[in-house]
Amino acid sequence: MKGILCVSHGFYAEAFKESLKMIAGNVTNLHALCLEPTDGPEQFKDKLVAIQPTLDAYDKVWVFADLFGGSPCNTTFQHYVSNPNIEFVAGMNFPMVLSALLSEEISLDSCIEQGKDAIVNVRTFMQAMMANDEDE
């Protein structure tokens, strides 16, 4: 089974997790770690050490970080870089992580593509749809 760990600045990862559970249900393989405003990289590293036994139970773990180059992403990568069963993605979005949660078979690259494809300028999309309807 695949474990999923969301890491973020502030409490974004925890709120993200709770929002994902609204759709995916009470999944047990979804975890969140937050770099709280009073934390530094060392406190965040302590959180990574504490969650290690939980993550070790999975065949593979995908880590989704809020921001490439930010302390949660960097600290998590540095801590787990030598573990070949852990993959890292920065710039997490809801469709991307939801796809990872709902499909054990999805590849990490496909998951990233789904996240990219879900970024849509709604006004432009809807205008194109209405123009197509008028043409028919």
Rank of each mutant, 00 (worst) to 15 (best):
C34E: 06
L35T: 05
L35V: 07
L35F: 07
L35Q: 08
E36N: 02
P37D: 06
P37R: 01
P37L: 01
P37T: 01
T38C: 03
T38G: 05
T38P: 00
D39F: 11
G40Y: 06
P41V: 06
P41H: 01
P41W: 01
P41N: 01
P41E: 02
P41Y: 02
E42I: 02
E42A: 08
Q43K: 05
K45W: 02
K45P: 00
K45N: 07
D46E: 11
K47Y: 02
L48G: 02
L48F: 04
L48P: 01
L48T: 01
V49Q: 13
V49C: 04
V49E: 14
A50G: 07
A50L: 11
A50K: 14
A50Q: 13
I51P: 07
I51M: 09
I51G: 09
I51E: 09
Q52Y: 10
Q52R: 14
P53A: 05
P53L: 03
T54N: 09
T54A: 11
T54K: 15
L55D: 08
L55H: 10
D56S: 15
D56H: 14
A57E: 15
A57L: 14
A57Y: 05
A57F: 10
Y58Q: 12
Y58I: 10
D59H: 08
D59L: 02
D59M: 03
D59N: 10
D59E: 15
K60G: 12
V61L: 06
V61I: 11
V61N: 03
W62G: 03
W62M: 10
W62E: 06
V63M: 09
V63I: 14
V63P: 00
V63H: 08
V63A: 05
F64M: 09
F64T: 02
F64E: 05
F64V: 07
A65G: 13
A65H: 08
D66V: 13
D66K: 11
F68Q: 15
F68H: 13
F68W: 14
F68T: 11
G70S: 15
G70T: 03
G70N: 07
G70P: 03
S71C: 04
P72L: 09
P72Y: 06
P72T: 04
P72H: 07
C73P: 02
C73W: 14
C73D: 12
N74K: 07
T75F: 00
T76H: 07
F77K: 09
F77M: 10
F77D: 00
F77Q: 08
